[in-house]
Nucleic acid binder design. Sequence first.
DNA 1: CGTCCAGGTCTAC
DNA 2: GGTAGACCTGGACGC
Length: 285
Amino acid sequence: MVSHGFHDLAPAQIDERHRSLTLTLRVPRGKPRRVTIRPGRRGHAAVDVAGPAPSAAARASIATDVARVLHLDQDLSGFYAIAAEDAALSWAAAGAGRMLRSPTVWEDVVKTLCTTNCSWALTVTMVNALVTNLGDPAVGQRDPLTNAFPTPEIMATQNERFYRAVVRSGYRAPRFIELATMQATGAIDLEALGTSSRDEAPDEEVERQLLALPGIGPYGAAHIMMTLGRNSKLILDSWSRPKYRRASGARRQPTDAQIIRRFRRYGPEAGLAFWLSVTKDWVAQ
DNA sequence: CGTCCAGGTCTAC
DNA sequence: GGTAGACCTGGACGC
């Protein structure tokens, strides 16, 4: 079972009916490839690559990206041990909780920025515009929504007017430029956050780095951290708060402090426990 | 038409 | 430390 965050956004497409996920992956020396991930033989995922057969190097690159997207290396045993003793979450101990994510940390950061202080419809508008106008087309695809997600390099070259007029990002425009420039020049290394372990860098340190990014606050940092497999922070926002109230059956909206207290027992996995509590209805039964 | 607000963040007190 | 105000956009709603 896989729970997804905001990843039904271009260029990714989730097909609930076929339980498949299609996305566009960059490969070394060649155009991006459109790739579909679906359930394979027991305990395995099957990966279909559109177009001509990929080279060995391309296959290796795709396999690495798919493993990252599915978070295959994540060890959730610590979470399951606690969830099994929690009546409200014991269902998750059967294997839920792997957080679907993007091929790059960069993409998850930009998409998170696109979810702040706006409707989901506007988030979709912004991401579609970025992918359509700045993404690299995959082989044999004409739909711009199947482009690979734009690189920080290309996003750094756009001006504020583009982000306002075309992307419809409003006041977020300078943040896109600043973020892209920082990543493109090496002033920050977002991908390194995706490979560092909790032993090397504690969650608090990663959170500090994320909060330093333009346009990223407590909500955004928590969301990005979940995609990094760092689950200590709760994703508290105008969607998850009322969703939690309904899911928990509370009559009145609990305060953030009350919610945090309820998940304290999960320690470093508190954010995951909270997220599964509010997305139980997303998980295929 | 205007006001409100949606999967917030930042600055200025 | 905590909190009001500003901030783009576009859809929902009231008048």
